[in-house]
Simulated assay, not measured.
Amino acid sequence: MKNKIIIFSNIKGGVGKTTLCALFASYLAERGYPVMAIDADLQASLYRHRKREKDVAPEVQVPWNVDLLDTANRELLERVMGKLKEVPGVVLIDCPGNLNDRNLEYIYKSADTAIIPVSFDADTVDATGIFVKALKTVSAADLVLIPNRINTSEKKSEELRQRAQTTEFLGLVGTVIPTVKQSVAVKRYTTLYPLEKNQLSAVEPSFDKIIETLHLNE
């Protein structure tokens, strides 16, 4: 399989990029795609999550690897990104929500695709616009925007109109993927065990569309 570097990023916190990265890694692995994850976030949430799970269940075989990437060391970062471009499979990178770290340009420039989780509130939409504008100055990555943790029970006409307008706006800068509904199942993730049935039903339409958009089956 050809190498694909896919980053999960946005400067707005709380949009669920780490959770989606982990869920997507599991989804790909369960479908036979060679996949690994890189935690480049300063909080190292994904890496620490895996470590906690392995401490509890050291006998469980990992379905995909998680490595930690120090973005503070410019020379090391450049060297690592060069090696990741040679990996025969999908490399998912959980990026920090930071536009001030110039070293991150090495990651952005290496990315084939940026998956950007969003919500429909004005602050997140504005922050996403700022991030997309900055990203485009250093990266030629295709943009995939995924509305995440969305309360779909809201049926007010004004709310629906605003969401339609936001989706149309996001569609001008990238491919908008079907919404991932707000649910406890999606917030709760594991890096060791298969996706639960309710998790699968929540993410399958969105993740299948991502696979189609990225031509991972080719």
Rank of each mutant, 00 (worst) to 15 (best):
S157R: 08
F131L: 10
N198A: 14
V35I: 10
S45H: 09
P96L: 04
M1T: 07
V180I: 15
E196S: 13
V91F: 11
W64I: 01
T18Q: 07
E204F: 00
I5M: 13
V132Q: 03
L68G: 02
I211C: 09
P194V: 05
K181Q: 12
L104F: 11
T175N: 08
L84N: 05
V62R: 14
F207I: 06
Y33K: 13
I115L: 14
A72P: 00
A111V: 09
C95G: 07
T166M: 08
N148L: 01
E158L: 14
E154A: 14
K83I: 03
D112A: 05
S157E: 11
L77F: 02
V173M: 10
E59N: 13
N198F: 08
E218C: 07
V87W: 15
I5L: 13
N98Q: 10
V132D: 03
V91H: 00
N10T: 15
E53K: 05
R161W: 01
P117C: 11
R48P: 01
L200H: 12
E168L: 15
A72R: 15
V186Y: 00
N100C: 05
L160M: 14
Y27A: 09
R79H: 05
I11A: 02
L200V: 10
L92R: 07
L192Y: 10
T166W: 03
L28T: 11
E30G: 15
I130G: 02
L77C: 06
A22F: 01
K2F: 07
Q61T: 14
P194E: 10
A25G: 13
G97Q: 09
V180K: 06
G171S: 12
L46R: 02
V118S: 06
L214A: 04
V87A: 07
E30H: 04
G174D: 05
T128E: 03
I177D: 00
E196V: 00
Y47E: 08
T19C: 12
I6D: 03
E30P: 06
Y193C: 05
E168I: 10
R48A: 04
A202I: 09
G16A: 07
I177C: 01
P34V: 05
V80H: 03
N103E: 05
G174E: 04
Y27S: 07
E30W: 00
L42Y: 05
D70M: 13
V35P: 04
E75M: 13
